[in-house]
């Protein structure tokens, strides 16, 4: 839980520096979001959210963590509520602050039984059509574990996409885990493509592992 100062500085910069297009937990009013992420073998997550209004969504998720340090595992299934706390719409930019919380069940690889688990987090992002940045932090807690996952993304688009064209972004991602899941910062370089409600991130980590995410809004 002792994060280097540079990490916090980078997170703060994500708030104020024009940054890539951020995956958001709320798509649009009456919209459904399905998201699947493969995080370098360390984490896998599947989420399904429905948004009755543009500022909140609710749904289910499953998070599987596999420790890169000692091999321990957590399988957390949860229900979650996402809320758009604040949005700034500017002429050529948008910024958001999302918060969420949920609860569910966790199974541990190293011991028997189910554990009640809760989660909470926030995400802040800023984007123009050329630069993007986001910082996300989420906490997963139970009587048997405490894991926080912090993810910073900074992106650059080689061209300004429009509504009917494919958006292309180059994204640098840094992710840190607490609770002995991964030692240090897991860096990844990603290619991001999206068009018409479909979104794909794919790349490699510094260890040469696959980092990928697919999302669809409908």
């Amino acid at each position: 839980m002792n994060y280097p100062t540079q990490w916090w500085v980078a997170g703060a910069l994500a708030l104020v520096v024009p940054c890539v297009s951020a995956a958001k937990p709320i798509a649009f009013a009456n919209g459904t979001t399905l998201m699947a992420e493969y995080g370098a073998g360390t984490m896998k997550e599947l989420q399904l959210f429905y948004a009755p209004r543009y500022f909140y969504s609710a749904g289910l998720g499953h998070l599987a963590l596999r420790s890169d340090v000692d091999g321990r595992s957590r399988d957390i299934t949860y229900a979650r509520l996402n809320y758009l706390l604040k949005r700034w719409n500017r002429e050529a930019a948008q910024a958001n602050v999302f918060v969420w919380g949920g609860a569910g069940n966790a199974r541990l690889g190293e011991g028997p039984g189910d554990h009640f688990a809760w989660n909470a987090g926030f995400q802040t992002d800023y984007e123009t059509r050329r630069i993007y940045g986001s910082f996300k932090s989420e906490l997963h807690e139970s009587d048997a574990f405490s894991h926080r996952i912090d993810t910073l993304q900074l992106g650059l688009a080689p061209y300004e996409h429009d509504y009917e064209t494919v958006a292309t972004w180059f994204v640098v991602q840094g992710r840190r885990y607490t609770g002995n899941i991964f030692d240090g910062t897991e860096w990844a370089l990603l290619l991001r493509l999206f068009k018409g409600g479909k979104w794909l991130d794919a790349g490699v980590t510094a260890d040469g592992k696959l980092q990928a995410m697919f999302m669809i809004n409908f």
């Binding site: 297009s21 958001k24 798509a27 649009f28 009013a29 009456n30 919209g31 543009y54 949005r87 700034w88 719409n89 500017r90 002429e91 050529a92 930019a93 948008q94 984007e127 123009t128 059509r129 996409h161 429009d162 509504y163 009917e164 064209t165 958006a167 999206f194 068009k195 018409g196 409600g197 979104w199 809004n217």
Partner: peptide
């Protein structure tokens, strides 16, 4: 319209 920076996000406008 202000805030129109991402096609992925703006599809809600068209849908509405």
């Amino acid at each position: 319209v202000n805030g129109l920076v991402c096609a992925f996000c703006a599809q809600g406008i068209e849908k509405t």
